[in-house]
Nucleic acid binder design. Structure first.
Length: 912
DNA sequence: AGGCTGGAAACATAG
DNA sequence: TCCTATGTTTCCAGC
């Protein structure tokens, strides 16, 4: 305790001004701030220390520390019940031995903030502590440690283990989960499956575990078998279940919690809000396996965890652990008690109540512990489970002629927030038919709004090219982010399984670290092509998600998503090739869909510096007075150049604009310069950034056919066949820098899962979460194979991380941390500047595969994409050859909605 | 009867 | 602190 305390203090006081500044500008801070708001202004540590923080950064740090402290000191309450939140004591057992104090350096301390900011929430990340109980291996708590440790044998690494019973603080939130979504939709019947599945998934975070494979096979066993693999590297994870607190716990737990929430959905309606108060426990009944009792320890999860665990292990690294700890600690208890917004509380209550109400037959069926195993009954949502479980079995909507493919041989599959290539060797995963740019997601309180459709009618189509084997594979689908940061599971949206007569494609629902994943068969007889008519999108309430322990993302205006498809191909060599492709962004908000301009396609992607060429934009919600603005931003987010393009009003239509490319500020380009443009209908009505490249005058204009290496990544799956226009809008931040691309390439090769995969992400969220994902082992990078992967990029479609400086070629090595900004910062704020070494993200380290992109840098949309310039040293914009001689007015304006948010956040901070 | 939608009222939050 | 503009959730009603 003392130690921690001291750490805390240090952290607080060690904050460097610059750090603060960064923080303020960074999303992380914002996140912290945001959270603060949620919780209240004062922080109280377990120790009883109350500090008044002056700066956001400090706040964040403080928070972080507090969490740690709490972890140690606090008993955890039961997850499920709201009421329980308040009671801290249930728990448990926490044995903590921290062997590596050093980890807490100032730096470390600093990281936390970022950490937080990062979407710890990420499913992958261990961040959120959903599970009731967590065992933590302390050894590599800090990134640095992790890095080093990663190379070490697991055994060595584990110095200390912390066992925590997690309060399911999250529980009140509903985890978005899975089931909830499905549950809701369950009406449609989907839920059944989903619920069932969710439970299932529960068990297997990794594909291997996935029910699909062979139910008979115990996930655990499989996992264990594979230990050596990536996991092993992660080492700890395997060995110590605790390792991936998150994993096991989180995922499952999380789900469970969500489940609770989900329950709410049904009951969630405001009407019921008050009711809930009372009956939280009712949930228990539902979870068959789990002890009804709140006792964390008891929680099935643990058991589950171990098993589950393994799979996830990959993802969880020490950092993850830390994250987990943080999450657990603070939120679980403290936050819940005080911080939780009334609304949220009500909800949770409601949920509980709801749950009871909803109890449905299905639930029981879950019976198979596997399915529903929640650690805590409470965690799991009864409703969902019920519905799901029961439904699942009962409803054979699709003849599952589809034999479960054995894809998942390797224990460790890449975490969902890992950036993977869309193609590798002969294989190429492509989205043949893109989804419509708008799809109104449904809330849990609503009925399903149907499956995502294709622009021209029908549904999205995904196909794996180059696969000649006769064995069917499983195509995974989850809802990912579409913001400027690296692609990762979306915290506020979940894929929703659609079933019914209109659905021709069978699917299974599974959970991976709190992220619902739809598993769809890819059959050789269908040319490894799947029509995605079984996937809808569920919207989780912002309040529920934001309250999650490690969650740093904010839901407000975060309404764009992408459908992310993955396939894991086991090769004779024992390696697993994982491919991923992301769809074009999909606007899920009713309102936004009706008001925000959206660019679906652009006829030109590049133009000589003098401009003058005409570009046709296809999209939605264009107005007669819509403006098209070209912008060039520096990595730090500053505007280097901004100019309004001429729009041919006569030709403009609601769904198309004819624009004249404005001349670039510097006519003497020696290398291509990447800029962005957006359509603006008014103050707050701007489209996302679209990518555009100015090339030296002598260079012929390239018409878009997407996908050269260069674009590939960016465009990713976007290709819409047949479209002459560039399919993809560029997402501001998502551009990958050449470096990234090169780095990333390692994509995935599985060696076990050999992974080339690297998490590109340094996303904040990743920190917590990522850390998990980053398990050292995972990183075995087998670079070669994938070097080209990225380009195809689909994998990282949009994330533009300006520089990901590092991708570790070396497993486990955290290279130049200094280069990366704290993950949080990196990921989160585009604006944030490169962080100092100290900022280095926490967790990531281990894996680091993914260098943390300088969060901010990435943001600058413009900077990122380099078409074919894979070189790492991709010149910054400024470097591009064209020094910003032309000085440009530098505005620091938010470019995107996201940024706007950030800005707002920043402001708040500053105000603070 | 139930699922899928489109619309919009009721709430909430930001500025 | 109040008001307005926006954004989020929940309801309704029609197909």
């Amino acid at each position: 305790m003392l130690f921690l305390k001291s750490c805390c203090e240090r952290s607080v006081f060690n904050i460097q001004p610059q750090e603060v500044a960064k923080a303020e500008t960074s999303r992380q801070l914002f996140s912290c701030h945001y959270r603060q708001r949620l919780r209240g202004s004062s922080h109280k540590t377990a120790l009883g220390i109350r500090l008044a923080l002056r700066t956001p950064a400090s706040q964040c740090v403080f928070d972080y520390l507090c969490n740690k402290l709490n972890v140690l000191s606090l008993p955890l309450a039961n997850p499920c019940l709201p009421s329980q939140y308040h009671s801290l004591q249930s728990s448990p057992t926490i044995s903590v031995s921290v062997t590596e104090p050093h980890s807490y350096d100032s730096q470390d301390d600093l990281r936390p903030p970022g950490y937080y900011s990062s979407p710890g929430v990420r499913p992958n990340g261990a961040p959120t502590l959903e599970s009731p109980r967590i065992e933590i291996t302390a050894y590599g708590q800090f990134p640095e440690d992790e890095v080093e440790e990663s190379s070490l044998p697991v055994a060595k690494r584990v110095n200390s283990i912390v066992t925590l019973t997690l309060p399911s603080a999250d529980g009140y939130r509903d985890p978005s989960c899975l089931s909830p979504a499905s549950s809701v939709s369950s009406r449609s019947g989907l839920s059944d499956a989903s619920s069932y599945e969710s439970s299932f998934s529960y068990n297997y975070s990794s594909p291997q575990n996935s029910p699909w494979q062979s139910p008979s096979v115990s996930p655990k066993g499989s996992t264990l078998a594979l230990p050596g693999d990536g996991y092993a590297s992660g080492g700890s994870p395997r060995h110590s279940p605790s390792t991936s607190p998150r994993t096991s716990v989180t995922d499952d737990t999380w789900m469970g919690q969500r489940g609770s929430r989900p329950n709410s959905p049904a009951g969630a309606k405001r009407k019921y809000s008050l009711n809930g108060g009372g009956a939280p426990h009712k949930h228990f009944p539902y979870s068959p396996n789990h002890s009804p009792g709140p006792s964390p320890q008891t929680s099935p999860r643990l058991s589950v965890t171990d098993e589950t665990w393994l799979p996830n292990t990959n993802q969880y690294t020490n950092s993850a652990i830390l994250a987990a700890i943080n999450a657990l600690t603070t939120d679980g208890v403290t936050d819940l008690g005080e911080g939780i917004p009334m609304k949220a509380r009500k909800t949770s209550l409601e949920h509980s109540a709801t749950v009871s109400l909803k109890v449905e037959p299905g639930g029981e069926e879950l019976g198979p512990g596997e399915l529903c195993q929640d650690e805590h009954p409470a965690n799991r949502l009864p409703l969902k489970k019920e519905a799901y479980c029961g439904g699942f079995l009962d409803v054979p909507q699709h003849p599952y002629s589809w034999t479960k493919p054995k894809q998942y041989v390797s224990p460790s599959l890449p975490a969902l927030d890992w950036q993977l290539p869309s193609s590798s060797g002969p294989y190429s995963l492509q989205i043949e038919v893109q989804p419509k740019s708008h799809h109104r997601a449904h809330y849990e309180t609503e009925g399903s709004r149907g499956a995502v459709k294709a622009l021209a009618g029908g549904h999205p189509v995904v196909q794996l090219h180059g696969y000649m084997e006769s064995e069917p594979l499983t195509l995974q689908l989850f809802i990912g982010t579409a913001d400027d940061r690296l692609l990762r599971p979306h915290a506020f949206y979940q894929v929703h399984r659609i079933t019914g007569k209109t659905v021709s494609t069978p699917s299974h629902e599974a959970l991976h670290n709190n992220t619902k994943v739809l598993e769809i068969p890819l059959l050789p007889e269908n040319n490894m092509r799947a029509i995605i008519d079984c996937a809808g999108i569920l919207k989780l309430r912002n309040s529920d998600i934001e309250l999650r322990k490690g969650e740093t993302d904010i839901g407000r205006k975060n309404t764009r998503v992408r459908m992310v498809f993955r396939v894991h191909i086991n090769q004779a060599t024992g390696r697993t090739v994982s491919l991923q492709v992301a769809s074009n962004p999909i606007e899920c908000s009713q309102r936004s869909a009706q008001e925000l301009p959206l660019v679906d396609k652009q006829s030109l992607e590049t133009c000589p510096a003098p401009g003058g060429e005409r570009m046709l934009l296809d999209g939605h919600n264009f107005q007669h007075d819509s403006k098209v603005v070209f912008v060039e931003k520096a990595q730090d987010g500053h505007h280097l150049w901004e100019t309004e393009a001429k729009v041919d009003r006569d030709v403009s239509k609601p769904n198309s604009l004819l624009v004249e490319i404005p001349p670039y500020r510097n006519q003497r380009l020696s290398t291509p310069v990447h800029v962005n443009f957006y359509v603006c209908n008014g103050k707050r009505k701007r489209s996302q950034y679209q990518r555009f490249t100015y090339v030296p005058a002598s260079v012929p204009t390239i018409k878009t056919e997407p996908h050269d290496d260069f674009d590939g990544p960016l465009v990713c799956g976007q290709q819409a066949p047949g479209l002459s226009l560039l399919p993809k809008p560029y997402y501001p931040s998502q551009v990958m820098t050449p470096m990234m691309a090169s780095d990333l390439r390692p994509c995935v090769v599985g060696g076990g899962y050999s992974v080339g995969q690297q998490r590109l992400v340094a996303k904040p969220s990743s920190l917590p979460s990522s850390s998990p994902s980053s398990s050292p082992k995972m990183h075995d990078l087998s670079p070669p194979p994938f070097s080209k992967c990225l380009p195809v990029g689909a994998a990282v479609p949009q994330s533009p991380i300006p520089h990901v400086s590092i991708i570790q070629e070396t497993p486990g090595r955290y290279q130049s941390p200094g280069l990366y900004p704290p993950s949080s910062s990196a990921s989160s704020s585009p604006t944030s500047q490169p962080s100092t070494p100290t900022d280095a993200p926490f967790s990531p380290s281990p894996h680091c595969m993914t260098p943390a992109p300088p969060g901010g840098g990435s943001t600058s949309p413009g900077a990122q994409q380099h078409p074919k310039a894979p070189e790492r040293g991709r010149p910054s914009l400024q470097e591009d050859g064209s020094p910003p001689t032309l000085a440009v007015s530098i505005k620091q304006e938010p470019q995107e909605l996201d940024q706007m948010y950030l800005d707002d956040g920043e402001q708040r901070f500053s105000d603070v």
